[in-house]
Every structure is written in structure tokens, then in C-alpha cells.
Nucleic acid binder design. Sequence first.
DNA 1: CGCGCTATTGAGAGAGCTCAATGTGCGTGG
DNA 2: CCACGCACATTGAGCTCTCTCAATAGCGCG
Lengths: 238, 238
Amino acid sequence: MAGLDPLIRTLEARGTLIPLQKEAIARLKIVEREYRPGEDLIKEGDYPRSSIAILKGTVFRYRIVGEGRRQITAFHIPGDLPDLQALFLKRMDHSLAAASESVIAAHIPHDSITQLLDTDPLLAQLLWRLTLIDAAVFREWIVNIGRRDAVRRTAHILCELMFRMRAVGLAEQDSCKLAITQTHLSDALGLSLVHVNRSLKELREKKLISLRQGLLTIHGWKALVEIADFDPAYLHLK
Amino acid sequence: MAGLDPLIRTLEARGTLIPLQKEAIARLKIVEREYRPGEDLIKEGDYPRSSIAILKGTVFRYRIVGEGRRQITAFHIPGDLPDLQALFLKRMDHSLAAASESVIAAHIPHDSITQLLDTDPLLAQLLWRLTLIDAAVFREWIVNIGRRDAVRRTAHILCELMFRMRAVGLAEQDSCKLAITQTHLSDALGLSLVHVNRSLKELREKKLISLRQGLLTIHGWKALVEIADFDPAYLHLK
DNA sequence: CGCGCTATTGAGAGAGCTCAATGTGCGTGG
DNA sequence: CCACGCACATTGAGCTCTCTCAATAGCGCG
């Protein structure tokens, strides 16, 4: 029963589920699999036949461009469905990988999702909504990379991650477990590793954050939000 | 009857419509409205009660950040549904404006869209698919802004726009009408106006493109695609 | 104990930015 | 029909934010 609990929490943070729907989700036949740090869950060009729900760990989407330059386009946390779009966009146009910690993912066959959608239009709407929120986050990332300098940009992504972890009950106090390295951050922010390190240093020296060994802590939420110009409206949480 | 033809062409470029579905779309009650260059169609914070189908002209989505820095997150061309997400994400988290030419937009009440979705699950899937493709384009923009230098980045967006115009029959030969200025491009690419001008100059001097008075022409498609590292897979066209 | 991954710091180089001036085309009023 | 205003495009020049190269440090694990 515990299996898809994270997914249910994620759905409830963004919409409403009645008990019957939770039961239907809990009844889904899933295959759990563990992935090593850095391992790909799906590769660009794949045609997945099931969708993934993250149960544990951090996952990111990425594309390699030019001569090995990597751009991360999203981070995903437990409860997320990072490849739901493959339900209707058959071919993967990007890859999905486990971040610095081993990841446990539930594979849900497309067939059973489709079946669920057919019988429950409201749940279908909620899943659609989830993909729309993904898109809203992508837009915010465009804004972040396009128009904020390195320190604000770094601050913004940390605000987003903490906010999302909180929304699904994965943060306690001001801390949450986030197994991402500075290399991940640099590839997500379109910055160099060195510059991310210096931006983090600046935030650290202002006593706003600490990030080490997979633990993100925000000591000065208010000031960080101010620097980042962070407005959580785009996350469309309840 | 001519009203929503651009929308039908856009849908058919990304999925299949049977005659019955086209008729249902053609029967939708719409209100057409014209917008002056620069005018907002929708503003951040609005709660739209209808969705927009662009019939003529170029539209863009944007957000203002910090001290008036604008980031454009998408361009939209005739046939596009640039605010379809508002169907399930009630509050707009960004604005929508007409580019340099007057725009004609059809307003389709959410009620009639919802009704259509309820009675036609396949059409619902196609519209869902449309929003997923939007998201794929957002991802590509993240990659473009995050990891490509100015010239490649500029080349890439021009490839995308031309490709999309072609897909809905709005390009002839190597030219298409695109009423966007260098200011729009700079806000879309996360570059300064001056630098976009210089990037365009470089592409122009290599005899690859020309862009003036709202007409984009690509003289060296192959070389441009090469420079841009452009792969249209992310547009998920048929 | 040493390898490998991640983080940190220094320093020089460069892509892209800002400020500022000039050019160009078009619509409008006299 | 011409002068003017306005929006957009172009070019020059100096500056700065961010990058790359390179070296060092810290930590966990076999």
C-alpha cells in the first residue's frame, strides 16, 4: 500500500482526490526499480511503454548539446511523474537520470494509466494539470536563466526546490534532503561550475543557505526570496 | 466557416482529425477580436474564461522580472492556442501580447471547450498533446538559452520559427511573414538588443538569413541548421 | 592509505552588456 | 509634397560578469 503514497501526496498538493481515486491509484500494478547515481532511467530516443513515479531520491531531465554541454531542464522529487508526457509524445526528446543518490522509481504501464484516464475524467484532468504545471516551471526556468544574474538565479532555484519539497511534506523545518551537486546546479542554471560555487559562497556568507552532502538548509527564507525575486504562484500549489 | 481554419491546420500538423471533429470545431461559437501591436491579450494575474486561438499575426508570452527586465517565453503563430493551459491553471502566471503587427484572435469560451472535451476524448488527447508540445518547446528554449552562444542561439530560434510556420502552411519557399523585431528576439533569447543585432549581422553576412520588415527568409537552411544544432524532433510534428 | 568525486580558490581571458550616437524607413500633419 | 516624429536598426567603445584553466582541499569508501 505504501508504494505510490508519494504520488498521492503530490497529486493532493495540486488538486483533490476522493478516497475512491486514491484506492484506484493504490491498486495500480507497478514495478519498482532502483537506479544508481548518474544512471539513466530513460534515454532520449526511447519509446517508453510505462511512466515513472519517483518514490525516493532526486531525478533530473537533461539534454546534451554541441560538444557534450549538458543542460538540465528539470529536477524531480518523490511523487513526481517526470515522463508523463511520453503518454502522448511517444518519443523521448530528452533523457532522465538519477542524481547523486540511488533512486527508487515505480514503473506504471501506459495501458493502465490510459485505462484509468478513460474511466475517471477528473483524474485525467488532474494529470493534465500536472503536465501544465511542469510547463509553468519550464517557463520560469527560461525567465530565470534568461534574465537573472548568477546569484539571483541560484537563489531562485533553491527557493523552488525547497518550496516543492515542503509542499509534499519532504522538508522539516528549513531543511530538506536534496542529493544534487554543484555540477547539477551549474548544468541546470546555464552557468559554469566555478561560478555556481561562488554564487553559493555568496549566499552562504550572507547566512542564507547551506548546501552540503545532500542537505539543503535555508536559514534566511525571507531574504533569499527577496534576492531571488521568487513568487511561488507559478507552482500552482493549492 | 473560415474562422478557425488555422486552428484546424495546427491540429492536423500534430495529430489526426476526422471530418466530424473538424465540423465540431467549426461549429464552436467564437468571438473575434483585433489587437494593436504591443497590446496585451491577457495579463498575468487574469483568470480567463475563454481560450484564444490566433487567426492572424504573431503573439508572444512574457513575464517582467526585477526592474523591468522582460523575458519572452514563447512565440505563437496563427493556429496556436497560447493560453490553453488556463483551462486547468486558472490564474495566468504570465502575460500574452501582440507582436509588431495587429493580431486577430478568436476567443473560445472555456465552457464550450470543456463540453467538447467531455464528448470527444480523442480530441481531448490531441489538445493535451498540444500542451505537451508547448512544454517540449519550453525545454528546448531552456537548452538554447542555457547552453548555446549568441549566434547559435539566434540561429536556433529562427530555425524553429521557420519550421513551425512551414508546418502550418504559412511559409512559401524560404520566406515567411514574422512580425517580430530585434527587441523581441533579444527578450526571447536572454540577450541584449545590441548583441542580437550583431548576431543577426553575422548570420546575414554569411548569407544564411535575412530578417527585415516582418519578413524572415532563410537562404542557407542547411548551414543554419548546422550552426544552430537544430533538430526538429522536439516539435513533435507528424 | 590512496583513489575518486565533489568543493574551493586564484587568475587571466572573453563573450556579452551598457551607454551613446547615428542611420533608415514610414506615417502624418501642414 | 515635404518636414518632422517615431520606431526600429546599426555601429563604436569601454566595462563587467561569467568562463576557462589550473591547482588545492575535503571526504567517503574499498
